[in-house]
Write a protein that binds this DNA or RNA. Structure first.
Lengths: 235, 235
DNA sequence: GCAGCCATGTTTGCAATGTCAACATCATTT
DNA sequence: AAATGATGTTGACATTGCAAACATGGCTGC
């Protein structure tokens, strides 16, 4: 099977799965060298193909990055959708937690998704759609919580924007704390090294997330329950 | 005075203040075209000098961007330091508000400061120092609040990181809401256009900021006072 | 089984860029 | 007025993104 794969010959005209190889190599390259010096030609070199071979798979350098970011949004959506608790408050909290965990586990893609590397999503329809879908997931959970009365009311778009922005900020912080210093200006600023102790890094953002939820929940009793469950889960 | 300035001749060997002109042009260029296609040669062209003239003022392309970011941090520090109310809670709130306002007013520089354009601060000593100083200002206000008992205790570095991350997230959102779409992926995702009504944009982040402070303040009564003062100020 | 199609790689070519080195010009100091 | 250092210029080189035009070889219809 796998007719496209050519077996184990070393040299051959066709590569096997250059597209995937490029995406992979690109990720690694960004993780080490950052996004600045990245060149399609270098990727091609590393994959052992001719300098312009990548253009058979991606229209442009931007398109490669966009493809990676699209993958990221799809995976992020999957993570967010995995938070399907019955209780809307818990669902929302878990959604945020999964979001942060995804960012932490995939800093390079997250960086591409929200950094300024791509600049403008227009012209990358798939990317745009994937991103939109992600936000829709959050908004759905918010609406759900509002309708059940668990979350306080208000314009859901403003609420969603605020929540996303703050969780995004936390995610950025976590990434910063994890990565040595590459592509992480905040790390230096915040002198974050001490935070790197495993547990502190894991718990701090979740505590922050819980605090964020204080602003969203209608009945304080609900929140107390959430803290309690969280504490229990940790031990 | 101003011996370096050459008067109003049109063409002459020396430019007058090329350094400033480059920084300025660079800002404009980024505001329109984004940071991706930016080239020193294009800047030189626009300034009417030879392609390599900029190298007399900046060691490299990165160094130019770093200089701009450094300026940004210095100005941001100024804004933050301007929040010198006696009451530590009010001082902190105003600090955050000024932070967001600065970001809103200087999206390009803010983008350079916290985006991934520069990548690594090491090697740009001045930039590093300016950024560090900014964070020190926040931390000082937090410590101040803790010592006076107004803010809840806890590791000030974790607290500072969280606060900074969230405010940073909000700032990003505001910038996104202001700018049409250039260099603002979040804008598309959040479908933020409706938020652009002047007042909503101005008030939403401040409300979010107040909610953020709910998590910091020891005595709820203090917070109530803050909300009240804020409401009064608005009217 | 084989002739041809089409996805995938290759070569060649061009304009633009970052950066270096050697040179020119000017303002200022001695 | 001559020297000097700061600023701008010219020329050169390797690298890059991207566009054609060309090559290869696995698949499909006969």
């Amino acid at each position: 099977m796998n007719a496209t794969h050519r077996g184990d010959d070393e040299r051959s005209y066709h590569h096997g799965d250059l597209r995937k190889a490029l995406l992979q190599t690109c990720c690694e390259h960004i993780a080490c060298q950052g996004t600045e010096g990245l060149s399609l030609r270098a990727l091609a070199r590393q994959a052992g193909v001719s300098p312009t071979a990548p253009y058979r798979h991606f229209d442009s350098r931007q398109a490669l990055l966009a493809a990676l970011a699209t993958e990221g949004f799809e995976e992020l959506a999957e993570s967010m959708a995995a938070a399907d608790r019955d209780d809307p408050i818990e669902a929302l909290f878990e959604c945020g937690r999964n979001y942060i965990r995804y960012a932490e586990a995939n800093p390079v893609k997250y960086h591409l998704m929200f950094g300024d590397v791509i600049g403008d999503f227009s012209g990358h329809e798939a990317l745009f759609e994937a991103a939109r879908h992600c936000y829709a997931l959050l908004e759905a959970k918010l609406v759900n919580g509002q309708e059940s009365g668990a979350l306080r009311g208000g314009d859901v778009r403003e609420l969603g924007g605020t929540v996303w922005a703050m969780v995004h900020g936390l995610a950025g912080l976590v990434i910063t704390a994890r990565s040595k210093a590459a592509q992480a200006p905040l790390a230096d600023i915040l002198q974050i090294a001490p935070l790197r102790a495993q547990q502190a890094v894991a718990e701090a953002p979740e505590r922050a997330l819980l605090r964020l939820m204080e602003g969203l929940i209608s009945d304080p009793a609900d929140l107390a329950g959430l803290w309690k469950r969280w504490g229990a889960e940790k031990s």
